[in-house]
Design a protein around this nucleic acid. Structure first.
Length: 286
DNA sequence: AGCAATGTTCATGG
DNA sequence: GCCATGAACATTGC
């Protein structure tokens, strides 16, 4: 459940389910997943109450009693769910938080990319450079046009990887980056310092609105799962280009193409999102 | 069999 | 320092 809207959906769901709950004990089945090491991790959490769950970019921040915070990143396939004590776990469940009310908060992750880390509350940035460098949240108040001008004006990167860079803007991932570029009629290979003032404002509005809409739609569910819990998310029905290669563009009917940009699958409409005049050397791919 | 998958980070080379 | 590319992490599914 990866990009900002999905992480926010998880945050809201977990807040409803386990805010106020107390940890009885914790089982770590895949030690590489946690920091500090599993022994310390589990010992630290015994008896702590989950006071609040925050989010920054794609990170979840579990606030425990006694000024302890667990920073959790789901990476590609991490998931949380809450089940009654003792209900069957899958082979991809790696951490089980046993609550004192006969329920279990479980972390499941097929690819084992996710990580969780305990730090004293207030020291998150010091502990994690990527949190310290995180760009502004994509909201009307925090992602200002002045800031957009500043970061876009002085970079020579192309826009697709630029949007994925969490230190510039927090929360966009591969799906929403493609969607926002289609909405803004900007080619993914466009150098960011060639965008006009008008394009920047269009892009800004689309980023803010798209993230907001996706949160309202409880995020996007791809890679089809059917967990017995939580918001399924229906925003996948509102995607225009991601996963739509070979289909006609909703605006002009031209076939949506998929290419590789900075090692990520990238979907766009070649007619609505024309290559900038000077961009060269990317006419191959498939 | 081979490759791509909602992500991040490190290493290398220009 | 900036930028691009490739690999690594680990598993599944097309």
């Amino acid at each position: 459940m990866p990009e900002l809207p999905e992480v926010e959906t998880v945050r809201r769901g977990l807040t409803q389910l386990v805010q106020g709950a107390t940890i009885d004990h914790v089982e770590v089945l895949y030690p590489k997943m946690v920091t500090p090491d599993a022994e310390v991790f589990t010992a630290e959490l015994i008896g702590r109450k989950i006071e609040k769950i925050d989010r920054r970019g794609k990170y979840l921040l579990f606030r425990f009693s006694g000024d302890l915070t667990m920073i959790s990143h789901l990476r590609m396939e991490g998931k949380y769910d809450v089940q009654p004590e003792g209900s069957p776990v899958t082979k991809h469940t790696h951490v089980i938080f046993h609550l004192t009310d006969q329920r279990e908060l479980r972390y499941t992750d097929t690819r084992k990319f996710g990580r969780m880390r305990l730090v004293p509350t207030g020291t998150e940035a010091a502990a994690l450079p990527s949190l310290a460098k995180m760009g502004p949240e994509p909201t009307e108040q925090t992602l200002t046009l002045a800031y957009m001008r500043q970061i876009f004006g002085k970079s020579h990167k192309i826009i697709k990887p630029f949007l994925l860079d969490q230190s510039r803007i927090a929360g966009l991932g591969n799906i929403y980056a493609d969607e926002v570029l289609w909405l803004s009629k900007i080619n993914p290979l466009t150098p960011v310092d060639t965008l006009t003032e008008e394009q920047l404002e269009t892009l800004r509005q689309n980023i803010i609105q798209e993230i907001q809409k996706a949160i309202a739609g409880h995020g996007t569910t791809v890679h089809s799962f059917s967990t017995a819990f939580g918001d399924a998310g229906h925003f996948q029905n509102d995607l225009h280009v991601y996963g739509h290669e070979g289909e006609p563009c909703e605006r002009c009917g031209t076939e949506i193409v998929k290419i590789k940009v900075a090692q990520r699958g990238t979907h766009f409409c070649p007619h609505c999102q024309p290559l900038p005049p000077d961009a060269q050397g990317v006419l191959d791919n498939d």
